[in-house]
Design a protein around this nucleic acid. Structure first.
Lengths: 135, 135
DNA sequence: AGGTGGAATTGACGGACGTCGATACAACCA
DNA sequence: TGGTTGTATCGACGTCCGTCAATTCCACCT
């Protein structure tokens, strides 16, 4: 149950490129496809709230029984969304007795943050102005 | 043509919360809905490549005529994807003579990066281990 | 063994999304 | 003015996605 995430974005050293450089180099098709899967998982309000509830939990993990009642949705629907988040590599889970607990996988979130972080002193002199937005 | 982005995520100071804290506080429905729109825009390989091509451009802007031939898709389809990226507030454009130029809106990318960046010394003692991943 | 309660899977349905061809619009040029 | 080229919009079509009710699976408890 803990081995369903997809190995994306050159995790450690197998694919060569550590974190595809979205903002500085044109993404190739393969990278774009993998990255899109993760962003697509984030592209739903319910999944975002689920992820947020899991990530912001003090102990680091949440019981499904605490997540489901927070939504006006059926239990299978919540289970479905959790599965998608897990397949995107954003969370993982474990059954402990009767209940199932979910927790955040910080590596994937960190990778996304890095991908969306612009290099510090880049040669980008406010491109919006350069386009003539003043007039 | 330059006023179609959606005003999301408490841009400067009107909505109170600067950058919804995805990872430290449970997102409310409104925030989740707005954020999901942006991530949904990133959840497509073609749009990711378009955004990457635009963001990584030296001059800061790209002509549509340079983007379209890079894909094996029809011209209306590319135009459609560019529109979605623009509505998500990720890019903007301007017609200059015969051609239309697109550029990145760094503010939105920065906001997403901030949302996905975990607070430095957070009380998260490797939650994956605490769950019993060692056994 | 049988029963109970929590969570995942299955199958079905309606709406959203990506794609295209055809068309409309805008700017340049002869 | 009419023709040409670049870009956006429209309408349609097939597929994917979010949702549910029904069912199955799993662990616990008599």
């Amino acid at each position: 149950m803990s081995k369903q995430e997809l190995a994306v974005l050159g995790q450690d050293s197998d694919s060569g490129t550590c974190c595809p450089a979205l903002l500085t180099t044109p993404l190739d098709e393969g990278q774009a496809g993998e990255l899109a899967k993760v962003f697509k998982a984030l592209g739903d309000p319910v999944r975002l709230r689920l992820l947020s509830m899991i990530a912001s939990r003090a102990g680091g993990e949440v019981c499904v029984c605490d997540l489901t009642p927070a939504f006006d949705l059926s239990q299978p629907t919540i289970s479905h969304h959790l599965k998608l988040l897990r397949q995107a590599g954003l969370i993982d889970c474990e059954r402990r007795g009767t209940w199932v607990y979910y927790w955040l996988l910080p590596e994937m979130v960190d990778r996304l943050a890095a991908i969306l972080t612009r290099p510090a002193g880049e040669a980008l002199p406010t491109p919006a102005e350069a386009a003539g937005a003043s007039a």
